[in-house]
């Protein structure tokens, strides 16, 4: 069977800006695929090309076996889009939003009403069903936005940064929904700026930067390259940090300096590497005043993959 998404050298330029600069990706069906990248990396552009909203300026893209440029109608009939910026109607109530879309996809009146009630209940929006969306919280809006994409069951769902700007509680709700989506067999293309999110939800991950794919693989493969975790150290002062970096180096670890000269980030392949380093630091008088072990930040991912941190904006070439 064909892939859910297949792109070859896909490009999209806006004047001098190459929003997509030769992306070749293959996304299998029935998976959650994570597209990870910083602001301006080209994530939304990729989603907009694949959902037929904009035309590529180069290369080819097939969605569920149909070419986005020559057969957009067939693509639209099989996908759903929950865009980065709320794609629900603020002035309408939650129920009215769903009813409008149910009518548009051709559900007859009773079936439409039943389907909307079912989705409102499943997405915990029953209590807010008759309120205008303008009064919804960010989390409720997102849930409605995803529910709106699931009225008919799409073969492929685009979720563009579904958790950006949400508080931890609302983010956990969206994560739970995406996990259930994956179990239901829907293919999901999820974009995010958080490695942790891609790691939690996606089976395969592509890292994108300046419109190019710079790494691709399973979460495990990616973490093998990036380190599965990172030890964040706060030292007494800048000289102590320099000393700590030397000690880490001696143990075969790489310590990355941060904007704050008292901070260091040390990528590790596992939490068990943290203990020897912390003991060595303490023994040699460079004990950290604070430390934390966690997932590498997007910045650390970029450091490991490209040797430079993630740059927030894509500067057009002079």
């Amino acid at each position: 069977m064909s892939q859910a998404i297949l792109t070859e050298d896909l490009s999209k330029s806006y004047g001098p800006t190459r929003a997509l600069d030769g992306v070749s990706l293959s996304v299998p069906r029935g998976q959650v695929f994570g597209l990870l990248g910083p602001n301006g990396a080209g994530k939304t552009t990729f989603v907009r090309v694949l959902s037929t909203l904009i035309r590529p300026t180069g290369g080819r893209a097939q969605v569920l076996g149909h070419d986005v440029a020559t057969d957009p109608g067939a693509v639209r009939a099989r996908i759903a889009l929950t865009g980065q910026f709320a794609s629900v109607d603020e002035d309408l109530t939650g129920r009215e939003n769903l009813m409008l879309l149910a009518r548009l996809i051709g559900l007859p009146g009773n079936a439409a009403r039943a389907r909307c009630a079912e989705l409102l209940a499943a997405f915990d929006l029953e209590g807010a069903a008759t309120r205008q969306v303008s009064g919804y919280s960010g989390g409720m809006r997102r849930r409605l936005d995803i529910a709106a994409s699931m009225i008919a069951r799409p073969e492929l769902l685009f979720l563009d940064e579904p958790t950006t700007g949400l508080d931890p509680r609302a983010r956990a709700d969206v994560w739970a929904i995406v996990r259930r989506l994956a179990r239901s067999g829907t293919t999901v293309l999820l974009t995010t700026q958080y490695l942790e999110e891609a790691d939690q939800l996606a089976e395969r991950i592509a890292v994108i930067d300046h419109g190019r794919v710079i790494a691709e693989g399973t979460a495990a493969e990616l973490k093998a390259r990036v380190g599965s975790g990172v030890l964040k150290l706060t030292l007494r002062d800048a000289p102590a940090a320099a000393e700590a970096a030397r000690i880490a180096d001696r143990l075969g670890l790489e310590a990355h300096a941060q904007d704050d000269p008292r901070l260091l980030e040390v990528p590790l392949t596992g939490a068990d590497e943290a203990l020897p380093l912390l003991s060595a630091l303490t023994a040699e008088g460079a004990a950290p005043v604070d430390f934390a072990y966690g997932q590498p930040s997007l910045d650390a991912v970029f450091f490991a993959l490209t040797g430079h941190g993630a740059e927030p904006e894509h500067e057009p070439a002079p």
Partner: peptide, 19 residues
Amino acid sequence: PRETRLDRALGAAPTVTAG
């Protein structure tokens, strides 16, 4: 029960008329 509701809603595939 919440997950059950979600699963049922996401698993259902209403028949739609192709536009």
